[in-house]
Structures are given as C-alpha cells and as structure tokens.
Design a protein around this nucleic acid. Sequence first.
DNA 1: TATAATATAGTCAATATTAGTCAAAGATTG
DNA 2: CAATCTTTGACTAATATTGACTATATTATA
Lengths: 157, 157
Amino acid sequence: MEGPTNISDVIEKYLKGILEDAEQVEIRRSDIADQFNVVPSQINYVIKTRFTIQNGYIVESKRGGGGYIRIEKVNLLADADVLDNLLNDVVGDSINQHDAYAIVNSLFNDGVLKEREANIILSAIDKDTLNVADREVENTLRARILIGVLNRLRFED
Amino acid sequence: MEGPTNISDVIEKYLKGILEDAEQVEIRRSDIADQFNVVPSQINYVIKTRFTIQNGYIVESKRGGGGYIRIEKVNLLADADVLDNLLNDVVGDSINQHDAYAIVNSLFNDGVLKEREANIILSAIDKDTLNVADREVENTLRARILIGVLNRLRFED
DNA sequence: TATAATATAGTCAATATTAGTCAAAGATTG
DNA sequence: CAATCTTTGACTAATATTGACTATATTATA
C-alpha cells in the first residue's frame, strides 16, 4: 500500500518513466525542482545516486543561458558480464601496473577489446604516463582509471 | 526533443551547417548579427567558444572596408604539424576537461578515433574518474594521459 | 599624396542565467 | 544508537548576452 516514501525516489521514478519511451531526457534543473517543490541541488543528488554509469546512464549538462541536464540511457553489451566479474573480483581500489596489464591483456585475448583499444588503455595506465611520485597514489589512480574505463565499456551508445 | 534555447548554439549550428558542404565559410560579422538579431560581438563569442583549434577550426579575419571573418575546417591529423602544435600549445602540461573533450571529439569527427576508442579516452580523463582534490593536479594528469595516448596512436601505424 | 571619413572587426568588463559542490541538519533504518 | 540516506541552502563555477570602447583597413577628398 505504500509508495515511495521520499521525494528523491519520486523524482527518480518520474525521470525513469520518461526514459521508458525515450532514449534520453533533457531537463532544466530548476523546472524539475519547482515541479516537485525541492531545492535545485536535490536534482543533483538524485542524479548522482540513481543515474550512474553502473546503472546504465550517462549524464551531460551545461550551465548558463539555455543550460540543461541531459540523461541518456545506454544498453548493456554482451560482454558486460565479463567486465562485471573483473570489476567486482579483480580490480580493487589499488592495482599495480603488472596486474593491470594482465587484465587488459586477457580482455584482448578474449576478444572483448580490440588491439587498438587495449593499447589506449595500456598507455593511459602506464606508470610513465601517470608519473606519480608515490607508488600507492599511482596504484590508486590506475585502479580508478581502469574501473572508469571498464564500466564505460559495459555499455554501447 | 527541443533544440537549443540559446542563440549562440543556433548560430553555431548555422555556421557548421554551411561547413558540411563547404571547405570554409566567409561572413560579414554584422550580416550574421543582423540575421540572428544579436549584437556583433556575440559573433566573436560564438567563434571563440565553438570554433577553436581544438574543435578543428582555423579562423582568419580582416577589418575595415570589405572586412570578413573566415572559418575553415581542418583535419587535426592531416598535417602532423597541426597535431604537434595542438599537443604543445593547447594541451601542454595542463588541460581542463572541457578542452580535452573538444580535442577527442574532433579526432572522432575526423575519423582518427572510433567511437569506442574515443569513449575509452573520455572516461580515462573524466574528472570523476581522476577524482583528484586539487584542480591543477587533475589538469596535469589529464594532459599526461591525453598526450601519452595520442602519441601511442600516432606512432602505432 | 596626405589626411579625413567611413566601414569593418576585436576586446573587455558588467550583468544575467544557468548548474555544481559541499557540509550541516534531519530522517530512516538496521 | 550508530550508520546511512535524504533534505536544505549558502557558496562557487560555468556559460551567455550586451554594449562601450578600441584597432585596423579601405575609400574619398583636399
């Protein structure tokens, strides 16, 4: 008998309802805030907690006159589960170059990544590219980049 | 799906529309300003924010009688020097997300990068991925990653 | 030819119009 | 009651619009 109990859930459902029929929604933040009688920054909260790339959404925005927030729904790829497993089991919040190379290489061998794609990732997480003095900072950064990229690759446009 | 509600975007689209079929556009600033009912200096604003070299455009102009503004589309990889200059002058050792995005997008539009490749690079240099407290550190890191990746692609073939 | 008048475009700063960040306060949950 | 999630609002940042002032090139005229 109980519907959603908080307004964030209501706003989430409203936006996802639109995305049932459309590829994307484009809103003016203050319009939605007015419509649901909340402060504008609550829209940011809803988006940040409920429209992440992990959930299959890409968000773009622009400030100033004619500004907007656009939420786009992206579809899961067939390879998504392979990437899921890696993300959950292998990549922690820190990873060294050797282990990261092994992951990218295995994705290439499995056909998930093309050669050129693998090379791009490898140079992005290369220790000479990152060039951070502290080894642990370097490994943390590498983990974030790898996670960010692999999460993006779970989806098509 | 509404169009842009700010006039700068409209003018941008108008000019880019012409550039679909032509190598370059040449305009009289006041003509375009009249046509879209804006002050002349807004044309400068549109050009300065949307027709930069990182977007893949070169702009020349002349004042006085018979004056003009000419916008030319360039391929960032057609001439190796163009990319060199871009990497040295625009990326340098620090670049913000907005400018970096423009470069990657131009390379995609020029056919240098496939969509998936562009997406990989974009997620690697995204500010939420890098997630560095200090803005300048973030921009430095982004510059190194972008340069590392692009150089790798450049010399791979 | 020198100079003045005219016709362009460029720069910059003020103002307006959006969205983003962050942390404190409040509410819910386990 | 501790941890987590939600709500709020003050402050920040980015983008767009406008117009006064400046710089430069061409054309007309003395």
